[in-house]
Amino acid sequence: MEPPRTCLLLLITYLGILANVDGFRNVALGKPASMNAYRNRNPPSAAVDGNATTFIHPPGSLVDPISWWEVDLLDTYYIVSVSITNRECCDNRLRNFTIDLISDDLSASPTTRLCHFYPGTVRKSVTEIIACDDVLTARKVRVSMEDRPLDFSEVSIKGLHACGGLQFTLNPGIRRLDTALRQLIVDSTATCAVRCRVEIDCDAFQTLTSALGVTCQLLVGQNGNTVTDNTWKYYSFIV
């Protein structure tokens, strides 16, 4: 079984020309945004309206120890970069902020992973293009800053549609015994899934997590000799 060609080609393009982020569209434009607190005339949506003259702004006083703004992308994307444009008025407000990615599982406890911590100050009217530290997928992107109110003009997110998520299903308590197409050490299960989708012959994968990282075995076909083994996690491609 072969992954959908369109999704596969997009992934190969993504992994091959990651540095050329301008080739990807802004997946945040016009999407629903929210903020922990804001002035009515400066709503969260101002940061994704495509207009750098509008801006978000918190209330007159600090409401919470951490100020945050986030956008819901309404689907799962591989996040290539996050661009933040500071307001034209202020040279020292936007600094030492964190960009987090929130999974497409929007249950009571969705998974939140670090995209990048930006140490330093974004000067007025300057746009900083920030690449995530790893290849990650997300449904929501959040910008947060401690001990200071958060305000800026615009956020642009370059992303690649994840083609319906990772499209693998977990088969608990099973380990395949057949020879792996490829074995490598990666940082996460999500990265292993990406590698499987890039390999034209990969139909499943399994992972073993240790202190050294995640052992990722790419497998051919969805049938093979299996044993019960709760230390490994086996994922098969959804047909």
Rank of each mutant, 00 (worst) to 15 (best):
L160S: 05
V143E: 02
W69H: 07
A46I: 02
T111H: 03
R142Y: 02
A33T: 00
S83A: 09
C202G: 00
M1A: 14
S188F: 04
D100L: 13
V135C: 08
I174N: 02
W232A: 02
L9Q: 14
T76E: 12
L212W: 06
R5N: 06
N92V: 13
D49S: 06
L18N: 11
A33K: 07
D105V: 06
T111W: 04
A131F: 13
P110N: 00
T207I: 15
N36I: 10
C202A: 07
L212N: 14
R123L: 11
G60D: 15
G224N: 03
V135F: 12
V71Q: 02
A204T: 04
K124T: 02
V214M: 07
T121V: 07
E146W: 07
L101E: 10
N171A: 11
D105Q: 06
T179F: 02
D151W: 14
E128P: 03
E2S: 14
S45R: 07
A33M: 02
M1V: 11
D104P: 08
D187L: 07
T231G: 08
T121A: 03
L8Y: 11
D91Y: 15
L212I: 11
D178C: 10
S45I: 06
V126T: 10
T215G: 02
D64W: 14
T226V: 09
N40F: 13
R148V: 11
R95D: 04
A46H: 12
L18A: 13
L10Y: 09
E2Y: 15
Y235W: 08
N36P: 06
T53Q: 10
N92M: 10
H57E: 13
R5Q: 15
S45C: 06
S125M: 04
C192R: 01
T169S: 14
G221V: 03
R197I: 00
P58S: 08
T112Y: 01
A180R: 09
T112M: 08
L166V: 14
F55I: 01
Y38E: 03
W69R: 04
L73N: 02
T121G: 05
L11K: 09
H116K: 12
R176Q: 08
F237R: 14
F152A: 02
I56P: 04
C90Y: 07
R87D: 00
F205H: 03
L74S: 10
Y118F: 15
K124P: 05
I200E: 15
Q217G: 06
N36Q: 09
C90R: 01
S61H: 14
I79Y: 09
I99A: 05
S156C: 03
C7Y: 07
V21C: 11
Q206G: 04
L8I: 10
P65F: 07
N230R: 10
S83I: 00
A19T: 13
G120S: 01
A19H: 15
V186A: 04
L15Q: 13
M145F: 08
D147C: 05
S61D: 12
A180S: 13
L9V: 12
T98N: 11
D49G: 03
I157G: 02
D151E: 12
S45V: 08
I129T: 15
F152V: 01
L8T: 15
I17W: 09
P172V: 00
G221L: 00
C192S: 09
V198A: 12
V214C: 05
V80Q: 13
I130R: 00
T13A: 12
R41I: 10
L150E: 00
I157Y: 01
P119L: 01
A19F: 14
V135D: 15
E154R: 04
N26T: 05
V27K: 04
Y77I: 01
I129W: 06
G16M: 10
V239D: 15
